[in-house]
Design a protein around this nucleic acid. Sequence first.
DNA 1: AAAAACTGCAACCGCTCTAGC
DNA 2: GGCTAGAGCGGTTGCAGTTTT
Length: 328
Amino acid sequence: MGRQPCCDKVGLKKGPWTTDEDNKLINFILTNGQCCWRTVPKLAGLFRCGKSCRLRWINYLRPDLKRGLLSEYEEKMVIDLHAKIGNRWSKIASHLPGRTDNEIKNHWNTHIKKKLKKMGIDPVTHKPLSNIATHQTQDQSKQQLYQSLEKEQENQQPVSVDFDPIFEHKFNQNKELKKQETSIGSSNITEAEVEDNIITSLFDTMDDVMNGFCTDEVPIIEPHEILVPCVPSSSSTSTSSSNSTNFLEKLQLPDFEWSCNYNSVNNNNDANNNDNMELWDDDDDFIISLNFLINGDDGGDKKQVFDAPHSQCSKMAMESESWAYGLF
DNA sequence: AAAAACTGCAACCGCTCTAGC
DNA sequence: GGCTAGAGCGGTTGCAGTTTT
């Protein structure tokens, strides 16, 4: 009865992934989609635990990931969400497109935590460290946090736009609204739902403010990095973690048959410039688009540089849900 | 120049929740 | 309803790269 164990752990490889393993995993998932993770390593020819494959894909190989440091606004978003919901990294990550829970968690532990401590704010309670016992309100400490952050930003970046008053104001408005709705409305609404609504509102606010993605977003597949050699090379033993930013240069996808209908994609890009989701409506669109990114317009010159503006690059930051469930 | 200390991030571990048997 | 595995999540570790001594 029951199911088979996830993996027998005997003879399974651990540690950093090689580019060869990455290629196998990407190749497998792009051709077969995300099915049962337990079967992925076996079918993909990997000596890894399915769990490990899943993590590698979600945290690193997914094409919709943004790379690079979190922007100031993403950082503020993380701080604010953390103040509301604590260490629920996946929840926080779900409101930051292209960011993974692991990435946010790491960023929190390595950067934000220190920053907050430096400012005299307890990263756990979000209250001033020296004044925890007092009755200072959370709003006051938050205000202090934002002021400190802004001050720091001013020092680092002379040109910055201050969105906080709008951000905070709208957030508080939404919070009040949700409170009222909850108290006036039925008692069927759970605390989690209210929390979700608040967070969603917060994200809407963020969206309003930023009008899309932040400007420093960097897609994992940078167009100029996409080079698909036709000749198979010997398997690399270098770890992907050390030279990971360029691993796609070595990526081979020998099993693909790329269609070359890039023009339609290009038109699609223009037509739906403000709609990231529609671009990836179905498998064909995705494959075509990936083909475009990799092969360029004629499909022949595989080293053609795709010199796309950032707005087009952001198309790569497609809805994560569509990747996870919808596309395949 | 070499060693030590520090930093940041990818990956692993172990737990919980959910769903199949 | 109980047992088990899959999936997901948060905490922790290990290691490569960087900075300091």
